[in-house]
Design a binder for these strands. Structure first.
Lengths: 197, 197
DNA sequence: GTCTATATTTCGATAGAC
DNA sequence: GTCTATCGAAATATAGAC
């Protein structure tokens, strides 16, 4: 059943490139190289196609956040995740959907997006809390809030990159955030180079 | 010529609510309470309507950034602007457009968006540079970068708020950013409570 | 399971009367 | 300047043969 697979892939890519409203079932069929009848055999319509495509895109995006739970000092994991390459001008596969009213008004689609951000947010929050415990961030930091701040920097970075048609605003926004993390960490604590529980 | 005005207003609101791809000329006419012939008399088509509507929305959004150039200490102006109320779940009239491929691929529309972000960015940058000079932010801060970071926090806040269908993520993301600014400022400088040139 | 009609509605725009 | 009528194309889906 490669048709189902191909249709899901094509829809995921088209949702990324054009959004929900601007993607027609016909576009999807053509990109997947699949006939119309075949498509309506596998999926009831555009909505179902979007759900399947969405689940896949979210898996891809969430997989990247596992860095936050990986090895190394918490602050190091945070900076490593922030430093990962992001195609700014292409936008975020997941975040872009929040601007599509037809997605937001579809409870199932919106639910998928909300869950994805929540899962990612918890990973952020955990890593930040560990960094505070380790003295790598000041105690004044509220993990749940900083988690949203850093998620927002990334999502906003996509917006700015697309506005300017350039990767640079995304990278600069992240550099600015990292610099702020360093400055906040700096003079207050850190007696030695990490490694203290 | 109230028809032109009404059409522009209706288009601006619909672009905000639904985006470009999902807004039809018919929708605009109906909301404006104007006949079809009348609309095509005033505007050559959807594109021209969008340009007019866009200019208006951008004026509205940019007007709010004048706080950054207003009275008070630089850091105070920055925090005042960050603290301004923002309808997170409604999204940003300007930023939302960057996710619409039909807007991004339209040089005139994209140009308007890019210019708007650039103007706002310069106001941010100036206020930040003044804050650094006044010792309210550490010298390690690169104004152009932090400007993009804070713009991104706001734009990303909209994304997160829409994802969760709640104002809270927007507000929390901004609180997290303000806390970070405080922490970065904190122990390093600030001998007395401001007022030193 | 896949294909080629075909149907219905909406989109975006034009024509031409008033 | 505004209106109604109409157009050709596309969106979304169904029907029914293979």
């Amino acid at each position: 059943m490669t048709a189902r697979e191909d249709l899901t892939t094509a829809m995921a890519d088209l949702l990324w490139e054009r959004g929900y409203a601007a993607t027609s079932p016909k576009d999807v069929m053509e990109r997947a190289g699949v006939g119309q009848g075949s498509m309506y055999h596998h999926f009831a319509g555009k909505h179902e196609l979007a759900v399947a495509a969405f689940r896949r895109s979210i898996d891809v995006v969430l997989a990247a956040t596992s860095v936050l739970e990986g090895e190394g000092d918490p602050i190091e994991r945070i900076e490593r995740y922030l430093a990962e390459p992001r195609p700014g001008t292409q936008g975020c596969r997941v975040g872009r959907m929040t601007q599509d009213p037809q997605v937001v008004s579809d409870p199932e689609l919106l639910g998928l997006v909300a869950d994805a951000f929540e899962v990612a947010g918890r990973r952020w929050e955990r890593a930040i809390a560990e960094a505070v415990e380790a003295g790598e961030l000041p105690p004044s930091v509220v993990p749940a809030e900083l988690a949203l701040t850093l998620q927002a920097v990334i999502q906003g970075g996509y917006v700015l990159a697309r506005a300017r048609g350039s990767q640079e605003p995304m990278d600069a926004a992240i550099r600015g955030a990292v610099a702020l993390l360093h400055a906040a960490r700096g003079p207050a604590t850190s007696p030695g180079p990490s490694s203290n529980e």
